[in-house]
């Protein structure tokens, strides 16, 4: 049985949504907001919203795409914004760059649409994060499996999704520890491939547990 020298310590996260000073009533204003809003705001409307809306596995990607679809009624723009996958980004700056590029190009190609009033305004908000130890640690795969079963949604989200920005390695806390702590690189890769856009947090967790069980039967 592999024992990690550095046990995995589970944390949980809780967010407050801080209402920002910016809002947008047209796509042109929306672009300005994307350019000027805080990093915490980009995080809130992409990474964090994926956690709070994890149960929507069909057609929901981020708040920006949802506004373009439901309020600005621009399906083509919504589709492009929804196609941005947060897992591809190592920094908020890079994600913001692509969001601005997509919306900026749309404004150039469709100047008339970019000035049309949306049904409802988009309000830029940001996440204020509080993290605390969840009170669980794991040194072996068995202990890790047991802890995963007992996590809250927020704790699972913190390690599986929001950790990608913290690590800046296109991986998540779980995969990082499985590879570095237990030397289980193949399992780590499989875990990192679980698709959070087509899974709820619960189904992603169930897949993770199945992958661990498969690994344990191999051993």
């Amino acid at each position: 049985m592999n024992i990690s020298e550095t046990p995995f310590e589970f944390f949980t996260v809780s967010y407050l949504t801080r209402i920002g000073n910016q809002s947008a009533g047209t796509i042109a204003e929306f672009l300005k907001g994307l350019q000027e809003c805080s990093d915490a705001s980009i995080f809130h409307h992409t990474f964090q919203t994926l956690g709070t809306h994890h149960f929507l596995t069909e057609g929901f990607s981020n708040d920006f795409a949802q506004w373009a679809h439901a309020d600005a009624s621009r399906e083509d723009l919504a589709e492009q914004l929804a196609a941005l996958d947060v897992r591809d980004y190592l920094s908020i700056a890079a994600l913001r760059g692509d969001l601005c590029r997509v919306v900026g190009e749309y404004c150039i190609e469709h100047p008339a649409f970019s000035e049309q009033a949306a049904l409802d305004r988009f309000y830029f908000c940001e996440s204020v994060e509080v993290t605390l130890p969840f009170g669980l640690t794991a040194g072996t795969l068995e202990e890790f499996r047991d802890a995963i079963q007992h996590l809250s949604h927020a704790s699972f989200y913190f390690h599986f999704l929001s950790s990608r920005l913290r690590l800046q390695l296109q991986t998540n806390d779980f995969s990082h520890w499985l590879a570095d702590g237990l030397g289980l690189g193949t399992l780590a890769d499989s875990v990192n491939r679980i698709d959070i856009y087509t899974n709820t947090l619960d189904s992603a967790r169930a897949k993770l547990l199945r992958l661990i069980d498969r690994e344990r039967t191999k051993a």
């Binding site: 949980t12 809780s14 509080v130 605390l132 130890p133 969840f134 009170g135 007992h150 996590l151 809250s152 949604h153 927020a154 704790s155």
Partner: peptide, 15 residues
């Protein structure tokens, strides 16, 4: 809600 969510409330309440 599940045990994890109840445990989380206790974690936040502790401090």
């Amino acid at each position: 809600l599940g045990q994890g969510e109840i445990d989380e409330l206790r974690v936040l309440a502790k401090p």
